[in-house]
Design a protein around this nucleic acid. Sequence first.
DNA 1: ATGAAAGCGCTAACAT
DNA 2: ATGTTAGCGCTTTCAT
Lengths: 330, 330
Amino acid sequence: MDNKKVSVKDIARLANVSIATVSRVLNKNGRYSAETEQRVLDIVKQYGYTPNASAKSLRTNRSQSIGVIVPDITNEFFAKIVRSIENSILPYNYSVFICDSHEDARLENQHLANLIAKNVDGVIYISGKSDVAAQDEENDLPVVYIDRMPEHAYATVQSDNEYGGYLATEELLRKGCKRIVLLSDMRPLSSVSQRTMGYIKAHEKYGVTVINDLKADGGASYHIAKQKTAELVEKGVTFDGIFATNDMMALGALHALLEHKIEVPGQVKLVGFDDISLSGFCEVPITTITQNTERIGERAVKVLMKLMLGEANDAQHYVVPVSLNVRKST
Amino acid sequence: MDNKKVSVKDIARLANVSIATVSRVLNKNGRYSAETEQRVLDIVKQYGYTPNASAKSLRTNRSQSIGVIVPDITNEFFAKIVRSIENSILPYNYSVFICDSHEDARLENQHLANLIAKNVDGVIYISGKSDVAAQDEENDLPVVYIDRMPEHAYATVQSDNEYGGYLATEELLRKGCKRIVLLSDMRPLSSVSQRTMGYIKAHEKYGVTVINDLKADGGASYHIAKQKTAELVEKGVTFDGIFATNDMMALGALHALLEHKIEVPGQVKLVGFDDISLSGFCEVPITTITQNTERIGERAVKVLMKLMLGEANDAQHYVVPVSLNVRKST
DNA sequence: ATGAAAGCGCTAACAT
DNA sequence: ATGTTAGCGCTTTCAT
């Protein structure tokens, strides 16, 4: 965007070589003398030449950029993943388009179309879509799904959600809880059902019966969780533990309990999931499952690079470990 | 990225027109019959044709994408702005590159260079740089600065920081505080100095002397604020109010006070800035200044569009209103 | 080791 | 109203 942007042509002229040679030097393709290389590089530096990405992209059909589609960049958990993705791909000199889908499938598709039109080399995708990846199959765009796994996804990276659910529930069980409410997102997200599975398995392991009445489904939001919890209390349901499938819901539950003068962890113990900073900073710091956002982002980039370079011969599925972060609520 | 991507050429052939006509239809440049238009559009739809952005960009020298440089996408305040920017520019069919600078000037420059190489049409920039915008002047890339204002910036959008600082301090003053600690980021950020100015003006207005010993500078972080506040208490400094220039710092202060058994708002009242959700969810919900992230993003996009379209004849400086959100800490 | 030239897909003169 | 054509800046055969 300089007033008069210099091009290969200019560099070639100034260095007394052909444009082909300039291109070779710039791309380290060999077949030039050390001397020529130096000369070209000097001129390049002197004139602050940078190759025109559009031209390059047009010619090579690769754009050196990727897209990342997230449900809500405002959510710390997703923001951290995005940040890790960016950090991890920076060394490869890729740029990243961020698309916030607002948990809306229509917007997701629009964004995906935009990204394709922009010639991205690959996409990292946290999709709200529970099912298939139909349109991704058509075009052979490399896509790695993270956090939520649509069926038939070829490449995925996710936390060990089931074990996380297990750990969370086990923590409650070990601290003596017998009637544990499962406060879960009702959307058909793989992450949620996996966490639920962990909840069930922990019960089995500890020989405690899962009580279905204690399931309180709803949206993933703070408000719904708060309301659902309040309802349970007001209906007189007895319970001594809550496992919320994410921290925002755990926080909502906490507030509902506190408002009803129920002591945490005295009367009811509480575990969340994600480990967003809110869970550590609230009235009663909440025990939670830490997701390693750093690792998730790194791994997603690694896998995507593999796909983009055509080095992946078969499906790529990665699971990153989670850990229990015990705080005051248990 | 389809297996065999269709091009204007294909569409032209299939529709029995020239490629020029196809281009005209697609860009609504007129000089074609309604009938031709229909035919072309049908074919386009039928074959799912999308123009190659690289080619278009190469030809027109515009990429239909912008860059956004933020200090920390993980910070809810910045994330909200990013989201608003995205929402606002979506209708124009621009894509946005996100660059997280980690508050690091070197990274900022690298990102900026990358963006320029990627041919972005403009940049929205939350810079850590306190000074100038030297290199932006060279290349005539449209840049709008938000939140933090380097000197000589041509286009800026920011909150009414001074008034925010005034409102915050006034709230403390009106509730009877006489000795108000200013807990501020020591980095030379325009936003901080403006808020400080508001703090001073409020004192003047209410005839209360500003006590310089009560200034506690430090980084913008939770931990530093907590530590600084603890120090004040331990040194036996008397104060009855704290104005922290952002919510994370306010939270740090709150925790330090609580740990020292100082009642909030009983003994010390506290006001923050930003209105991130954390400030509403903590032990003692913190009174704060709400920044209208929505409006900031919208306005930034409006201004940037103006610049990109060459419609701005002179410097563009916008200030968006703030408001006081009274909670429990005052 | 180097150069000439074709062509990626598109837009915009310039014809007609 | 429509077509022909040059050329954006680059990579990549194919020569030499």
